[in-house]
């Protein structure tokens, strides 16, 4: 198995002629928590959507397991990874149905769906929520359902787009614990996009700073947070530049 789950080569994306991402070269090592850090509107969400194959890059390539993407593999690859959106939109059904959805579209049998969903709901601490309507939950609960929805699929890669941006501190803590747990317990590669430096510090093994559509610095989280090379990163870490 290739040590890198995903590598990108000069990945670029334009919207209406405006460059959002410019020649992104990323290497995402398996089994690690990667943080993509940068101010809002810098293209973090776009990058995640490109990696999850929800959108097409304007140019550049994405390699999975060291192989370039082929059109035929799209669905199969997409099913090996999952993206939790910044503001998750849940289906207007029960919590159980929401979490089971990804398994159902994979046509798993009912028994194993039931088992996996129960387990996932336990992990996100929503054990007795099975029959509640997803739309009636609080923001934090919704976010946890969305994570359970993704986790239950046992993806190789889990993308999280600003998973705690609108939440209260208690829910932030719960969700951060959850992310660590998922990564350690299931060996899932996690890619988290965040503008919150403290969150990145708490969670990430690897960090990539995105600024102006380019990667300005990338490497081991510890090293970057202690001895940043780039001036902008330093200012950010010192809290002088608020994203």
């Amino acid at each position: 198995m290739n040590p890198y789950a995903i590598r990108t080569h000069d990945l670029s994306k334009e919207y209406n002629g405006e460059a959002i991402l410019k020649k992104i070269n990323l290497q995402l090592e398996r089994g690690r928590i990667h943080a993509i850090i940068g101010p809002s509107g810098v293209g973090k969400s776009v990058l995640l959507r490109l990696l999850n194959l929800l959108e097409e890059p304007t140019s550049g390539e994405i390699h999975f397991d060291g192989r370039a993407l082929k059109e035929n593999d799209r669905l199969e690859l997409q099913r090996r990874m999952t993206l939790v959106f910044q503001k998750p939109v849940l289906f207007n059904t029960s919590v159980y149905e929401n979490v089971a959805y990804g398994l159902k579209v994979r046509k798993e049998n009912r028994r194993s769906i039931l088992e996996k969903v129960r387990k996932a709901l336990e992990v996100v601490d929503l054990k007795n929520y099975e029959h509640k309507r997803a739309r009636n939950l609080s923001g934090g609960e919704k976010q946890r359902v969305a994570i359970a929805q993704a986790m239950v699929l046992e993806p190789e890669i889990l993308f999280l787009d600003e998973p705690t941006s609108d939440l209260d501190p208690r829910n932030v803590a719960i969700i951060e614990e959850l992310i660590k747990y998922i990564n350690e317990e299931f060996k899932i590669t996690v890619v988290i996009a965040t503008h919150n430096m403290f969150q990145a510090k708490r969670l990430a093994h690897e960090a990539t700073f995105l600024f102006g559509g380019r990667i300005i610095e990338s490497g081991k989280a510890q090293e970057i947070f202690t001895k940043p090379k780039d001036r902008r990163v330093l200012r950010f870490i010192e809290g002088k530049m608020i994203f």
Binding site: P88, Y101, L153
Partner: peptide, 9 residues
């Protein structure tokens, strides 16, 4: 988008 991301055809 949610459905696609969860692997739906």
């Amino acid at each position: 988008k949610s459905a696609i991301s969860l692997g739906a055809t």
